[in-house]
Amino acid sequence: MTAQRFPAFSRLLHWLMAAMILAMLFIGIGMVASLADYHWLLSIHRPLGVAILVLVAVRLVNRQINPPPPLPADMPAHLRIAAHASHGLLYALMFAVPLVGWAMLSAARYPIVLYGAWQLPPILPQNDMFYAWLRSAHTVLALALFAVFLAHLAAALTHAFVFRDGVFQSMASVRRAKA
């Protein structure tokens, strides 16, 4: 059987980011609905978003150095296209959501506090209309990321439970990949 696995570092990045992004999506949707929990959730939201932005850049570089294993040879073309397109979309959104968040706080002229006196510089000049537009974009893109995440989860589970083609195991395995 073709039991190729992702390299260990790639799997580590994947599962670390999976936990962070899922937590982030729940923190984001929870904090904008809450009065009592808004502030402490927001104080996690900003540094966690920056950590995700850094990690997705690391991950994109790692992907060039440690390419993913090929999809099974008998996988039909439409499923391959769906796999590549959804992965491209996930990468695009993992960059876009935190960058739009950073830009939106800049346009609103909020200090972008990470922790204590640590903060990020603004990346846009102050402009209230930019802020309003970016604030909406942040929500729309985050909901799109949640939707693509659901599709990714659905695909992963379908590979695991229905197709049983080793794709799920290529990422889910905890054992060291065979060289």
Binding site: L35, Y38, D128, M129, W133, R135
Partner: peptide
């Protein structure tokens, strides 16, 4: 925290 949250909504609505 409630002031912070509510001000944010007020600000977002009026900014646009």
């Amino acid at each position: 925290s409630a002031r912070s949250a509510a001000y944010s909504v007020s600000f977002t609505r009026r900014a646009g």
